[in-house]
Amino acid sequence: MSTEPIAEELRDATVTRGAGGVIIELAQVDKFFGDFQALKDVNMKVGKQEVVVVIGPSGSGKSTLIRCINRLEEHDAGRIVVDGVELSNDIKAIREVRRETGMVFQQFNLFPHLTVLDNVTLAPRQVRKTPRAEAERLGRQMLEQVKIPEQADKYPAQLSGGQQQRVAIARALAMQPKVMLFDEPTSALDPEMINEVLESMKELARTGMTMIVVTHEMGFAREVADRVVFMEEGQIVEVGTAEHFFTNPSEERTKLFLSQIL
């Protein structure tokens, strides 16, 4: 992208704002659960270093969308390309994409039988074949980044929800991914813990990480999102800057949804 697109152009979900090139591309993606169509003809691109926030009512397909990007869900039609690798049934391609794509879940999904440090170092050691000492050095560095280095030797159950979610972020970062996917990372947290997680995510955005974040935290969107995508019933309804959504959303459905969450 040679010139920064103007706000009007950003209304198209395939126009990106990143620094140099597209890293994720979804073209005409459909996804069905039985008879229920979770994604309908989704077209979207994400640029390198871009932060995209996906909002929408529950059941709108926003979680399905990001779960298709690392193939936790299989799309039924269309193309999904991540960093030049197209997702298909090829298990090698899938694992290549997953190596480069970190994911943070609503329910943290830490491994309860492993210490915090082992949670963080497992994938680098087993997937990247990083030697233990190197992996632990990296792991502690990641825990440092999310501001909980002192918890390294505890078990997840001994941590608060906010701390657990920050460990989950560190665990994903330890694979040094090119893209981070966040699936409602603060929805399961007590209110007083939401900020510490959002702070970690903002910090990450400032380092230039490419991020897709499913969330209702509009304050976060306003602060760090390059673009906001509003979904409903499996379709992308409206796209724009956070500012656009706050000031003059064009679709009636967007206005209605925003009036409910703001």
Binding site: L72, R98, R99, T101, G102, Q107, L110, A168, M175
Partner: peptide, 27 residues
Amino acid sequence: LPEGQEEAAKALGLPAWRITSFIVLPQ
């Protein structure tokens, strides 16, 4: 086991048999 355990391991790029031996079976 909650489904999220296996999903988290998959998302990290672990191959199937390592997910079974490191994450699923111990728990």
